Simulated assay, not measured.
Amino acid sequence: MTAPSLDSSARVATDASARYAKQLASHLGRRIEAEPVEDGWLLRIGSGTCELRPEADALVLSATAPDAATLATVEDVVGRHLVRFGARAGLSVEWSSGTRNEAVAPEELDPA
């Protein structure tokens, strides 16, 4: 059975999304695990994660954590650093309200 998790996301408008994603991963990668993935970067912050996915006009952030406190930490760390790096460009991060994904046994998953 997979563990329940909370998710949140943010879409940060910028024409330099790839640069900010790489800068964030490089900076945070000194203290946490930051690994390149197919569409961007995956940051592991405690028991939570945040995917950084650059798009042409925005950097999409997708956070996941097992509980509200960890999700808040992931949002704070990623959001605070990104805002600081993008201060001159006026970047702001507004996370969507989290949603809860309930635990599901693997045999209950729809294979389609």
Rank of each mutant, 00 (worst) to 15 (best):
I45T: 11
S26I: 10
R31E: 09
S92T: 07
L52N: 13
L71W: 13
D67R: 04
Y20C: 00
G98Y: 05
E102P: 02
K22D: 15
A72P: 10
A18I: 05
A34S: 03
V37E: 02
P54G: 05
N101V: 12
V77A: 13
D7G: 02
A72W: 14
M1A: 10
G90T: 02
E108K: 12
L24S: 04
S96T: 09
V60Y: 03
D15G: 03
S97Y: 02
T70Q: 07
A18C: 01
A105R: 10
R53F: 01
V93P: 04
A103W: 10
Y20F: 09
K22F: 04
A105N: 01
L61M: 09
A112Q: 10
P111K: 02
P4T: 01
E33S: 06
L52D: 15
F85L: 12
T99E: 06
M1N: 08
L71Q: 06
A21M: 02
A58Q: 11
G86D: 09
M1K: 02
T2K: 12
L24H: 08
W95T: 13
A105W: 05
D7M: 11
Y20D: 09
E107Y: 02
L42H: 09
T2V: 01
E33A: 15
A63G: 11
L24C: 05
L71E: 14
R80L: 12
V37K: 06
P66V: 05
T2D: 04
M1C: 09
V60Q: 13
S5M: 11
R53S: 04
R44H: 15
V12R: 08
T14I: 08
A112R: 14
A87M: 09
D76R: 15
R11N: 01
A112W: 14
A10V: 10
D57F: 13
H27R: 13
A69T: 09
E51N: 00
A56Y: 08
R84E: 11
G46A: 01
A18S: 15
S9Y: 13
A21D: 11
D39G: 10
P54T: 03
L28F: 04
L6D: 12
A18E: 05
I32V: 12
